[in-house]
Design a protein around this nucleic acid. Structure first.
Lengths: 305, 305
DNA sequence: ATAGAATTATCGGTTTTCCCTATATCGGAC
DNA sequence: GTCCGATATAGGGAAAACCGATAATTCTAT
């Protein structure tokens, strides 16, 4: 049995005429006759009752042709599906992003993305870096926006932009009096950090030359699960924290108790990149996505070509 | 695209391993790889994301494999259908019978038929000869039990049995006094006949040497549409009629006002045969049907070998 | 009755597809 | 670095699908 054979029997069932059916299938009449005969032999039944003058379908033939029609329809559906997915820009793109980036980046790009690539539906996951990478491995997402270098062997990465860290402190904090915050100031400051696993915590510790989490002492149990929570804590005077650039934009607008200040250090930034499986077939979709992201970032971040 | 190709992609989707999938499909791994690649090229999309180390299905691949599964299932259904119809004795057999035979023959054979050929469902149509032959031409029925010779060119026929005609007259009829009914008696008798198109009417006229229906005079508007109606008329003294043998059996039991008498003439019978399209493929089913019919006829009919 | 038209089946040869073995290539493990 | 496991590639052979020509059969028209 064969899809072609099924086309043949459907054509004969429709036209009741081997010659016309053959024409419709773009084959010669002997070919069609032979193939149908072969199929009948294979199935062990007679599909069509033919005389030299006429062709009529048998009851069982009728039933089988009905199934054949369904099969051909399904096959056509497959071709249609394939057709509409041929453009790599069409179809859902599953992007993961770290929690300290996603809430501040997505609002900037979702609308432009829908305008520029209406056929591409973005499916967003927000997770910590390790979880994202695991989901990438499992093919649950197609790419991940992260701020940590990953093993180049396992995934390909495209660097997108460098995002500076800002210091956020309460309005009544001693820093309020200082014109410039120096590295030394930072090194001596106890920072509020996100809980274990958030790359932002590690990055902040690095910027402030902290050796390990344990050094923080009493504040250990204040480790928050989201940047928003952390900022709430800053707002009520619990301490300072480092905030990545994109997240600062929201604070400036909304919270009068929090002061954000640019850091002097040149190396106080994190590099955001897009990681994806080397074998991922829709590279063009990723490139288009990246382009939209870069086109819609504020001037405050440093875009990498 | 090809049914085989679809088996390949389903196998790969199931095992996530080209080698194992190939084994399951009884082909070599290069063959399977090649065919899948060909299919991907044909569809213009990537079904599987493969590295040298692992295989994962793409989202669109997942969708397509789902359709492929349905197609293969339908194909299997076709094979199953064919399988269970391979035995020509299995499946519905559509038999037509003339109206003056069907009500008397069917009760005799339905139960034996169900016992002997439980897998064959009999679908019965009751029509006049010409209608039966027309339905035979249109493949609406598979065979017809008729009592008229048909053009041997158009249909094949199998003679089954000769059915004698009996005379049915009211108990108070002059015939009641006669010991034997002669041809001359019949020739001078006005018979009640079935309406136009019933072969029994023609046959009765022939037996009684009637030239044409018009000779009957006043009784013309009494032409009945069924033998049962005709016998009702006989029962209330409207006249005589000829009744075929199988129909007589019912009368003897139920009606005290009707006398049935065997005719002396040797040629007062009709030949019942089974007519079918020469191209009908389930000849064995017909033979089996005939056998059951002949095995269950009463001794009063003359069975033809 | 005979010729002609229409229709399906059959035959021989060609092209295409499918499949196999052998081998290359790549990534990971020891 | 070498071996192992996995997929991809190459070349050749077998099977199938296909075509044109033709046969066989049946209906139609003259």
């Amino acid at each position: 049995m064969n899809l072609r054979d099924l086309e043949y029997i459907v054509a004969v069932a429709d036209s009741s005429h081997f010659g016309h059916a053959a024409e419709r299938c773009y084959v010669s009449q002997p070919t069609l006759s032979g193939q149908i005969k072969k199929l009948e032999d294979e199935l062990g039944i007679t599909l069509f009752e033919r005389t030299k003058r006429s062709v009529a379908i048998t009851p069982i033939g009728e039933t089988i042709v009905a199934h054949a029609r369904e099969i051909l329809e399904q096959a056509e559906t497959i071709r249609q599906l394939a057709q509409s997915h041929q453009d790599p820009l069409v179809g859902p793109l599953r992007i993961g992003a770290i929690l300290t980036l996603s809430p501040y980046l997505m609002p900037l790009i979702l609308k432009p993305l829908r305008d520029r690539l209406p056929q591409m539906q973005l499916v967003i996951s927000e997770e910590m870096t390790e979880t994202l990478l695991e989901r990438l491995r499992r093919h649950e997402i197609d790419a991940a926006l992260i701020a940590t270098p990953v093993d180049a062997g396992e995934f390909s990465t495209i660097p997108l932009f460098d995002e500076a860290f800002w210091l956020a402190h309460p309005r009544n904090h001693p820093f309020q009096e200082k014109k410039n915050i120096t590295q030394k100031d930072l090194d001596n400051t106890e920072l509020l950090l996100l809980s274990e696993g958030h790359c932002l915590a590690d990055q902040a510790m690095e910027v402030c030359h902290m050796k390990a989490r344990a050094e923080q002492g009493d504040m250990a149990d204040l480790h928050a699960a989201s940047l928003e929570t952390l900022l709430q804590l800053v707002g009520v005077g619990f301490g300072c924290t480092l905030v990545p650039d994109l997240a600062v934009r929201g604070i400036r607008m909304n919270d009068k108790d929090i002061v954000t200040r640019r850091l002097q250090q040149k190396d106080a930034y994190r590099r955001v990149s897009l990681a994806f499986r080397r074998s991922f077939p829709r590279r063009q979709a990723l490139d288009a996505f990246n382009e939209v992201v870069l086109d819609n970032l504020p001037d405050t971040v440093h875009i990498l070509t």
